[in-house]
Design a protein around this nucleic acid. Structure first.
Lengths: 201, 201
DNA sequence: ACCACAACTATACGGTAGTTCAACAGAGAA
DNA sequence: TTCTCTGTTGAACTACCGTATAGTTGTGGT
């Protein structure tokens, strides 16, 4: 006996929302198996859609990869929040970096995969240039604020670049051997790195 | 007119030497194009041998990958040399890390690729466990020596772990944007990191 | 009710992945 | 020379890659 209203063959979304879901699926696959799992088959299966959709919405796998990279930056480095009274922007930034949503195995497995692609993928390199400069500038400004406040003379840019490298390295270590590098250890290492230059903040 | 001695159809090597050459070819491919270029076709073409040899000598591509990882450790972290009079082992270690043969784009492109594989590849994870612990221990001992000499009380293990992370992060940055992070900058960052804990060394 | 368009499916295509294997080539021993 | 290993080739195999495209489904405007 036929149903009056037949059940839909698929769930229809707006292009923008479908793109977001494909990016999420791509992130999940990449976290699970690096660039080898970042394939049309795996991502579409993860998202529960047919194989044609990635090309339809992004034009190419490379475009999806670039979108994934941009999404990682959005999620990890642009989480400015309200400062508590007396809290410096630098302290808030460090808290954000080592929050569980940002500092975790999956995330750094994805970062590791993406970094490995940057130097061999022109589009990704372009996207990186756009995002990274802004990221370091934010950190440098936060360091500069503390330096001014405490009347110390530091090269905020150099310090920021080193700090960012340290954070990356700590994240990698956490990714590879989580037990040997907890978020607290990592944050402490960063503070210990900054302390001699800025004092407590 | 036929030659008396026909030219050989291929160059015959001992198994060990062929393995070494395949590893070198694998490194070259990985430096060029990450894990995507680390394929049977590309590596055998690079080494100038037929496609069957990798399986014959290593049993699987995964075994070759593991051998490549071990080779990177041999080349980068086990280059102890004679100490100059009055030179600390820590200073020599830092010099070695930032020497051109170790601190360069190709090398860190390879490291990046390998690190991205560790958490998704069981064999590689095993190899990592063996190598990394020894590496950190060496650094920690070098730090400990300086600490004792200068009569300072530091946690050499914690310091070593952080230093190693910093070096990794600096290397990645150099790999992705060489102009923004020269070897000298990177070494200076490491010294600046250690200075408050150890004094000059 | 119909149309126009966007979202989506399904499949086909050429290329390339890692592995297997039977046959061949070279070098030293007998 | 002949035998015996080991190194080496190269084609065959199955599986999967990213892309292209023809056709179907759903939705909102008129």
């Amino acid at each position: 006996m036929p149903q009056k209203a037949t059940s839909p063959k698929y769930v229809r979304l707006t292009g923008e929302e479908r793109r977001a879901r494909l990016i999420e699926a791509g992130l999940a696959c990449m976290a699970r198996g690096g660039i080898q799992e970042f394939t049309v088959d795996k991502i579409c299966a993860e998202a529960g859609v047919s194989r044609g959709l990635i090309i339809h919405h992004f034009g190419s796998m490379n475009a999806l990869l670039t979108a994934v990279y941009a999404t990682m930056y959005d999620g990890s480095t642009k989480l400015s929040r309200e400062l508590a009274p007396g809290e410096t922007r630098l302290a808030a930034l460090l808290d954000a970096f080592f929050a569980p949503e940002v500092f975790n195995r999956d995330a750094f497995n994805i970062w590791l995969t993406l970094w490995g692609q940057i130097s061999i993928n022109h589009d990704l390199k372009e996207e990186h240039r756009l995002q990274y400069a802004e990221y370091v500038r934010d950190v440098a400004e936060a360091i500069g604020e503390v330096a001014v406040e405490s009347g110390r003379n530091v090269d905020a840019d150099v310090l920021a670049r080193s700090l960012v490298c340290l954070i990356d390295g700590l994240g990698i270590q956490h990714c590879i051997e989580p037990m040997s590098m907890h978020a607290d250890d990592a944050k402490a290492a960063c503070r210990s790195f900054l302390l001699p230059h800025l004092g407590s903040f």
